[in-house]
């Protein structure tokens, strides 16, 4: 099943002005249901534009966008409904908090959906639980929370709309390793529990390797590579050719292969690398 499908989409900013700039050109990809898809690329590679096209904030200059099998621009008046089905968490989302209480802020989306009071309350509690915001925090002002907590409240505000697809633009940007892991594992838990589709934009190949089922590499507005992490990382040199890094262990394994050792090319986590090296060494511990 396809969660979203982009059919040959392009987008040009400030068309017909001297500032004209092609952000996305001829991207043709399918986002599969129930998977976590990672999108990586340099600033200006078109990854943010792409995500805003999927939830209908940006209308492609060319091409079509399908969400759950429906062309979202068939009925432009109902585009708001698309935004509820495709939840988009922007970069540094904590800067959009505005309500007096955490509870009210998380409820903003569901309220706009015109849900009844009980349903809204249920969703707020659910969303808060997913991101690890304890109930006693719900009546505090969002502005009194720590940076990491604010970020989680903002993400809860989108989760509370129960979107079929959740898109997150660099959810871990600016956080320290502990904060990163906390947020990313929460998102991965959420996906597991609800079975929803997740699209995650990131600059970190390590995070992609750890959390994503599929990876889309964007380069200069085009879909450069698209596949499973092992497919992507076995083409490490292609990824590096567009100036993106691959995880340190992937580079190590590549280097060892170049030196003539028989190791799998598609290793990208520390655990797998250790296993693979031990296997190649003849398994078991080395009594040294």
């Amino acid at each position: 099943m396809n969660a979203a499908q982009l059919k040959n989409v392009s987008y040009i900013y400030s068309k017909d002005t001297p500032f004209e700039k092609t952000a996305v050109s001829g991207v043709d990809i399918t986002i599969e249901s129930g998977l976590t898809t990672g999108v990586i690329g340099h600033t200006g590679s078109g990854k943010s534009t792409l995500s805003q096209m999927i939830n209908g904030l940006i209308k492609p200059s060319e091409g079509e966008v399908f969400v759950l099998g429906k062309n979202i621009w068939d009925e432009p008046k109902k585009i708001k409904q698309v935004r509820f089905r495709v939840g988009l968490v922007f970069q540094y989302p904590e800067y959009q908090l505005f309500e007096e209480t955490v509870r009210a802020d998380i409820a903003f989306g569901p309220k706009n959906m015109k849900l009844d009071k009980d349903e809204i309350e249920r969703r707020v509690l659910d969303a808060a639980r997913f991101v690890g915001i304890p109930e006693d925090m719900l009546d505090r002002s969002p502005f009194d929370l720590s940076g990491g907590q604010k970020r989680r409240v903002a993400i809860a505000g989108v989760i509370a709309m129960r979107p079929d697809i959740l898109i997150l633009d660099e959810p871990a940007a600016g956080l320290d390793p502990r904060g990163r892991n906390e947020i990313l594992s929460r998102i991965s838990e959420y996906k597991k529990e609800t079975g929803s589709t997740v699209v995650m934009i990131s600059h970190s190949m390590e995070d992609m390797a750890k959390y994503c089922d599929k990876i889309l590499v964007m380069n200069r507005g085009k879909a450069f590579l698209y596949g499973t992490p092992s497919e992507i990382f076995s083409n490490a040199h292609l990824v590096e050719s567009v100036g993106l890094g691959v995880p340190q262990v992937t580079r190590l394994m590549q280097k060892l292969r170049d030196m003539g050792y028989d190791l799998s090319p598609s290793v990208y986590t520390v655990e797998d690398a250790a296993k693979e090296i031990i296997r190649a060494l003849g398994g078991g511990g080395n009594a040294s």
Binding site: Q52, N55, L57, K80, R83, F84, G87, L88, F90, P93, Y95, Q96, F108, G109, N112, M113, G157, V158, M161
Partner: peptide
Amino acid sequence: KIMSAQKSRGAD
């Protein structure tokens, strides 16, 4: 950016 973000949450 904030307008886009709130639109994503159904603001009109």
